[in-house]
């Protein structure tokens, strides 16, 4: 099952200049594992705390909830609120 992963532009240097990736993953947790394995340069960003927007809904990096097939997933910097 493939999901579409969108990266912010300054991450492209770690993904062979691709800002959109198609990745086989059943959950955010699995997706994080694939990203860290295939693109090690992303690991410091993921470790520093990022959010994943799954079809417009924020999810945390450890989520094991099933991802919808073809989900649109945006990597986003962690939000600070006032």
């Amino acid at each position: 099952m493939a999901v579409n992963v969108y990266l912010w532009t300054s991450l492209k240097k770690f993904t062979n200049e691709e800002d959109r990736l198609s990745i086989e993953a059943k959950s955010i947790g699995e997706l994080v594992g694939v990203l860290e394995r295939d693109f090690p340069g992303l690991k410091p960003f993921i470790d520093s705390g990022i959010s994943f927007a799954v079809n417009g809904e924020l999810s945390n990096p450890n989520s094991n909830e099933p991802l919808p097939d073809g989900a649109e997933i945006y990597l986003m910097q962690k939000l600070k609120g006032g």
């Binding site: 532009t9 300054s10 410091p44």
Partner: peptide, 20 residues
């Protein structure tokens, strides 16, 4: 500066982000 800062930036740049 953290891992996001491009080479050549001022040492007072702590992080960098770009998207669009």
């Amino acid at each position: 500066g953290d891992f996001s800062v491009p080479e050549g930036c001022s040492p007072n740049v702590a992080s960098y982000i770009e998207f669009g």
